[in-house]
Design a binder for these strands. Structure first.
Length: 790
DNA sequence: TCCGGCTGTTG
DNA sequence: TCTTGCAGCCGGA
């Protein structure tokens, strides 16, 4: 009988010398099962050199066959390689690990041009070939193998026929368990070989539980951790920054005590490091919520508290926050241990609540790309696009190009940014080309397969010529075009389906996440082409796309002016115009008719303000909300106090036009600073260490502060955010930068720096354009001051 | 006073 | 480890 299964993860194992695909799944009744499929075999392609004798080559390949993993089959197949038809030999073997060895050997043959698709992991190969989607459904004929002590599932089943993809949107009840650990860290950054775990908390649908270590022996805690997961048997494990902190720490501590950490669904198998630096747990999806947080760029300092606060999951004012460097104190003091427990539990709970919010999108991205849920968010944007493209390639009989090491090649020209008209404007419409780059790629059939290479002869009627001279064949459809059309049509279909549903239908929510995932993938295609690491890298293609984009926006600008629309500003695919309803309507029609692209009103500003700087403006939207773009207020590398001041000034000036009140407000903040009444946390400046400390040529403040933290015993590495504060003293500024947690007394802080270099510049950036002088802002009269300065 | 290093942003 | 264009701070010559 045919059965339906929701796929959680796909892996494989070698059983009796043969590979068996393992599909960890949930059946329609909610039973956790393991499906075994034993008739899939690893393979790769051999692309012969021009004119090579294929039969001879086959014989030569058969000679390298090894008994442990013999070459089972060789077949000459017709494929396409970057759009050109090719005859290749498909070589099938037995053991996935042997593919690499065969590749290295066969690559050396003089008749061989390239060995292709020999670097696709076996489980992914299966997912692509059988069109299986993790976080989606399959249907197949099965035979029960009953229970099996080796696997922690309710039933093991053997797939008797072929697993078939099933389009079914409903989701079974997938169980989520969140956890968080706290560790002892008296001497700065905790070290697992020395510092024990002092508290662990779990959170799920049923609530929160935790356990605190009684002494420095954390073995009981580790056993409790293991047994709690096994008891709960979650499908998805979540945590915050677990891939780079909690898991490596737990694994080290478990090693120290020789405690088995086999918390997955395979008995005796501990977590291991996966392809994208994530921790892989057999049979469960181990998901790091930090991977979602990374992409929430509205939140600058991405601590769990900040992300949870931003998404209204747990407000900062309503919870306990213990600063990292002080955690150990709460454990050492018995009267404070309950606070530590509370803190730990609130972290686990907020992680759980965030996972409910984020996972649906991750599941849809997983469904589309084919990457299992635990990998898809850990993988970078480029890899997500690439796995999606590999599925498209398989469906179109296209060979997947190998990854090639490329030097940092010459860069290319990007988009156009118009110089804004300086000042305050009312009733401004922002007109945006819809999906400009994807639509250019589709219209001009852009791709490495249609690109006319130097020396190739073509009829001028058969190609599109970009403004920078690159030519693309009009036929057949480019590989990227197929991919994009598929995505754009899918999005249309999803949106139509959504119209039939009410917004509180769970199916609506799922479809909405899916259409968002589709959009993300489509929009990343252009950037992918310009990524030197991409398999389908094509610099000329990316260059042509931006060139067509520039042409398009300039043509639109001309049309707007001819219609008498006043253009204030424009960037890449948008034009800001004074909103004249009739003219804008006409403009949209002309763009559609004459240029063949869709342009839409994205938003309307009641008031919008520009300095002469590009990519910086602020406005009040029709709904009354303030929108700030580019200015210090929306950057993460300015002190909170400066951002707050600028935001308030913008609000006052744009909404009420009350410049005097803004001045009064700034003066008050300056006075507060002088009286040390602004809390330290609003004075921290956060910057990322983009390199490791010894790579810096210069010594900017955040590097100086980072070095101080390092000397104090804190681990500081590339990619970390460093929060520093400027203190008083005679030396130059950077020498006075200290890590925020090393400041003992707020009176050590150089408030003058914050007044002169943070608050006043941030306020003046706006007020300067309303005729306010720095002297006036400081409370002095204009005149003499100005005279002396000049 | 100018330039390069550096970061975080932009669409 | 998806792209380029841009502003602005800081140190050092």
């Amino acid at each position: 009988m045919s059965q339906k299964f929701y796929v959680l993860d796909v892996s494989y194992e070698i059983e009796a010398g043969k590979p068996v695909i393992l599909i960890w799944a949930i059946d329609e009744s909610g039973k956790r099962v393991l499906l075994k499929y034993d008739s899939f075999r690893p393979y790769f392609y051999v692309l012969p050199k021009e004119g090579a004798d294929l039969e001879k080559l086959k014989k030569k390949i058969s000679l390298v066959s090894q008994p442990k993993s013999p070459i089972l089959n060789m077949e000459i197949v017709e494929k396409k390689y970057i759009g050109r038809p090719k005859k290749v030999i498909k070589v099938t073997t037995l053991i996935p690990e042997s593919v690499r060895k065969y590749r290295e050997e066969i690559k050396k043959f003089e008749e061989v041009e390239e060995v292709l698709e020999a670097d696709i992991r076996f489980a992914m190969r299966f997912i692509i070939d059988k069109d299986v989607s993790p976080s989606g459904w399959i249907e197949c004929e099965t035979e029960s193998l009953g229970t099996d002590k080796r696997y922690r599932v309710q039933e093991v089943l053997k797939i008797k026929d072929e697993p078939k993809r099933l389009e079914k949107i409903e989701k079974p009840n997938v169980s989520i368990l969140a956890f968080d650990i706290e560790v002892y860290n008296k001497s700065g950054t905790p070290r697992p070989e020395r510092d024990p775990i002092i508290s662990i908390a779990f959170a799920d649908e049923e609530g929160v539980v935790s356990k605190i270590a009684e002494d420095k022996n954390d073995a009981p805690l580790l056993w409790w951790f293991r047994n709690h997961i096994l008891k709960k048997d979650p499908d998805i494990l979540v945590g915050y920054n677990v891939n780079h902190f909690d898991w490596p720490y737990l694994i080290e501590r478990a090693k120290f005590w020789k405690i088995p950490l086999d918390i997955g669904r395979k008995v005796g198998v501990p977590p291991s490091t996966g392809a994208y630096g994530h921790i892989s747990v057999p049979g469960r999806a181990n998901v790091d919520i930090y991977d979602f947080a990374k992409e929430v760029y509205e939140v600058k300092v991405k601590t769990l508290e900040n992300i949870a606060d931003y998404f209204d999951v747990m407000k900062k004012e309503e919870r306990i926050i213990i600063p990292g460097p002080e955690i150990y104190k709460y454990w050492e003091d018995p009267s404070k241990r309950e606070l530590l427990r509370k803190y730990n539990e609130e972290d686990a709970l907020s992680t759980f609540l965030l996972s409910k919010l984020f996972l649906p999108f991750g599941e849809q991205l997983s469904y589309l790309t084919g990457l299992p849920l635990d990998q898809v968010m850990a993988a970078s944007v480029g890899y997500r696009v690439e796995w999606y493209l590999m599925r498209i390639a398989f469906k179109n009989n296209e060979l997947v190009p190998n990854r090639v090491e490329r030097k940092v090649t010459q860069s290319y020209r990007g988009a156009i940014v118009l110089k804004p008209l300086r000042g305050v404007f009312h009733n401004v419409a922002v007109l945006d080309f819809s999906s400009m780059y994807p639509n250019i790629m589709i219209k001009y059939n852009v791709g490495p397969d249609t690109l006319v290479r130097p020396g190739e002869k073509v009829d001028p009627n058969d190609v599109y010529v970009s403004p920078v001279g690159h030519k693309f064949r009009k036929k057949p459809d480019a590989f990227f075009k197929k991919s994009l059309v598929t995505l754009l049509n899918l999005r249309k279909k999803i949106k139509e389906e959504m119209k039939e549903l009410s917004e509180d239908d769970p199916k609506y929510r799922l479809l909405n996440e899916r259409q968002k995932a589709v959009k993300v993938l489509a929009n990343a295609h252009y950037g992918y082409m310009g990524w030197p690491h991409a398999r389908w890298y094509c610099r000329e293609c990316a260059e042509a796309v931006t060139a067509w984009g520039r042409e398009l926006i300039l043509k639109a600008l001309k049309i707007a002016r001819e219609l008498g629309l006043k253009v204030i500003y424009g960037d890449t695919d948008s034009l800001f115009v004074i909103y004249d309803k009739e003219k804008v309507k006409k403009f949209i029609e002309i763009i559609e008719k004459e240029l063949g692209f869709e342009i839409k009103i994205d938003k309307i500003y009641k008031t919008v303000f520009f300095t002469e700087a590009k990519k910086r403006y602020a406005g009040v939207l029709e709904n009354g909300k303030i929108d700030i773009v580019g200015f210090e207020a929306v950057r993460g590398d300015w002190a909170e106090i400066a951002k707050e001041v600028q935001e308030t000034v913008i609000d006052k000036v744009l909404r009420t036009g009350n410049v005097d009140e803004a001045i009064k407000y700034v003066r008050e903040v300056i006075s507060k600073l002088k009286r040390y009444e602004v809390p330290l946390e609003k004075l921290i400046i956060w910057k990322t260490l983009e390199k490791s400390l010894d790579e810096y040529k210069a010594e900017p403040p955040h590097v100086v502060a980072a070095k101080r933290a390092l000397r104090a015993g804190y681990e500081v590495k590339k990619g970390d955010k460093v929060g520093y504060v400027i203190v008083k003293g005679p030396e130059r500024l950077s020498k006075r930068a200290y890590p925020w947690f090393m400041i003992k007394d707020i009176k050590d802080v150089d408030v003058n720096y914050y007044i002169e270099h943070q608050v006043i510049p941030a306020a003046m950036r706006i007020l300067g354009y309303f005729g306010v002088s720095e002297a006036k802002l400081r409370g002095r009269e204009d005149g003499l001051w100005k005279f002396f300065k000049k």
